[in-house]
């Protein structure tokens, strides 16, 4: 894995659930001690949800595509970009099911999108040249 611009490394994984194991150590290593632990854990949550969403729903079952992760720490921000060649999907505007009023009524699941938006309110999405780009900027504490 060659170092990329900004001194951080990119990670390219197969868009399948089995590949998710690699994103946790990757983010820790790419952060290189520059990101405070609490912020880093929040970034882990948002990243896990975003990548899991693509791996689980972005590709046909017999045709996993690719997901590329990038981290840049600059200008007071830690910015994650998740690029994938799956079906077009905007996690920043997709409808979120309202929370049920009781345990009896709740259907477990569907909380990942809400977590991405709560942990990273400035998330943006773009579809370009057949690829999805989800950008998750996290302000660095001063």
């Amino acid at each position: 894995m060659a170092p990329a611009e900004g001194g951080n490394s990119d990670l390219r994984i197969v868009g399948a659930v089995e590949a998710l194991d690699r994103i946790y150590p990757w983010l820790d290593e790419a952060a290189g001690g520059e990101i405070p632990e609490t912020l880093l854990t929040r970034m882990h949550v948002a990243l896990e949800e975003a990548v899991a969403n693509v791996a689980l729903h972005g590709f046909a079952p017999d045709a996993p595509g690719h997901i590329t992760l990038r981290l840049r720490v600059e200008d007071g921000q830690a910015r994650l970009v998740i690029e994938d060649n799956g079906a077009p999907f905007d996690p920043t505007t997709a409808e979120i099911r309202p929370m049920a009023a009781s345990l009896a009524e709740v259907t477990p699941g569907g909380w990942g999108l809400g977590l991405i938006r709560k942990f990273c309110p400035a998330a943006t999405y773009e579809r370009r040249d057949g690829l999805n780009y989800l950008t998750l900027p996290f302000p660095m504490p001063v």
Binding site: T41, V45, E49, A52, V106, G109, G112
Partner: peptide
């Protein structure tokens, strides 16, 4: 660390107990 998939496991368990 807890991801949304883990919430699902917790809620499913709680639903069964409450039932």
């Amino acid at each position: 660390f807890l991801a949304s998939i883990g919430l699902r496991s917790l809620v499913q368990c709680a639903k069964v107990v409450q039932l």
